Simulated assay, not measured.
Amino acid sequence: MVVPQGSLGTWDWKSIVSNMFPLLIVLSIIVLWAGVTLESAEEMLEEVAILAVMVPTMVDMGGNLGAILSSRLSTRFHLGTTELDPRDRVLWANVAAVLALAATIFTALGVGAYLIGVLFFNSAIGLSTLLFISLVSGMSVAVIAIVFSFAATYGSYRLGIDPDDTTIPIVTNVVDVFGMVIFIGVSALVLGF
């Protein structure tokens, strides 16, 4: 695939601002949803303080995983080495790497939360429960990050917008919101809130 010159081949601050400003307004409104979700879960987070400790890492890591994949996809588009063909082994290797990284990170989050809970909060939540919450939430967020990474990168490219300008804000914001909603939902279901 050859990357067409034009809007993808040049750097123009006016086009970046005109493309990004409306997008950032929409994304800001979407992120408000995460804040509303967090606010609605305040009682649960106060009662089970270790969950509040997990929130920043849970939300941040989902967006980071999506940013990693989006960057790799954008680079491949710019180099002309991808067409998002389902038979492309490199694409599947990138997806597998993101999932493996997610499994590692969210396992470490569950174990770390358990240790912090035991040492500082006298938490009664067991390791298996925290691992379950962390892994189910985290792997769900990783899958959403993968889907939005592909959609944002391919959509930007098809619209003639440089994916480097749009994918990271789209993926990180959307995945942050879904990360918060999924984490709160899984925690509430598992702990009976």
Rank of each mutant, 00 (worst) to 15 (best):
A100R: 09
L23T: 15
V186Y: 08
D176A: 10
F150V: 14
L79Y: 15
A97K: 10
G117P: 07
L191A: 00
R89I: 01
F120L: 11
N94R: 12
A188Y: 15
N19T: 09
E83K: 10
A145T: 11
F121W: 08
L131G: 00
R76E: 00
I16A: 03
F148M: 09
A96S: 02
L24N: 12
P86V: 04
R89W: 07
M180V: 13
L130K: 13
I105Y: 07
E46W: 11
G138A: 03
L99F: 11
M61H: 07
W11A: 00
V143K: 01
W11Y: 10
A188K: 14
I125A: 06
T107P: 07
Q5F: 08
A108F: 15
V17D: 01
G192D: 07
L101R: 10
D162T: 01
L91M: 10
L65E: 09
D164E: 04
I125F: 12
I184W: 10
P169L: 04
H78V: 00
V147Y: 06
W92V: 00
D85E: 15
S15V: 05
V186P: 01
V181I: 06
A67G: 08
N173H: 08
S18C: 05
V186A: 01
L131H: 00
I184Q: 02
S28C: 09
F148Q: 03
A188N: 08
S28K: 10
G117Y: 11
